[in-house]
Amino acid sequence: MSARILIVDDNPTNLKLASDVLRSEGFAVETAQDAEQAQRLLLQQLPDLILMDIALPGMDGLALTRRLKSESRFSHVPIVALTASAMRGDEERALAAGCAGYITKPIDTRAFGRLIGRFLAAGGS
């Protein structure tokens, strides 16, 4: 069974890009445009990995990550930041919030699937 990925991103175009690339690589993808929607989906079914945009309206990606990491039923799900915030310190902040990894936009569509596969392997071990 293919791995299930939840992508959280408020920008619909970028959401579409990430989903389509991952789907083409054989992943099962669900999407959310904000923290609220993401939390609703998480209550229905737990994904194998969450790709988390950081700049979100309302609760931002880092706050959502911290919340999920603090709850035992979600804390084991690896979260990887996927963000256009690429200044020094951004990665450190993401890792400090509990992210397992940090991918900057623009993404490399040719390496994206492999990269996610590696995070899944690391998170699943």
């Binding site: 920008n11 175009t13 970028n14 256009a84 915030s85 690429a86 200044m87 936009k105 623009p106």
Partner: peptide, 11 residues
């Protein structure tokens, strides 16, 4: 940087 990268990601 953030605002330029966001559309460039799609392009």
């Amino acid at each position: 940087s953030h605002e330029l990268r966001t559309p460039l990601n799609a392009v």
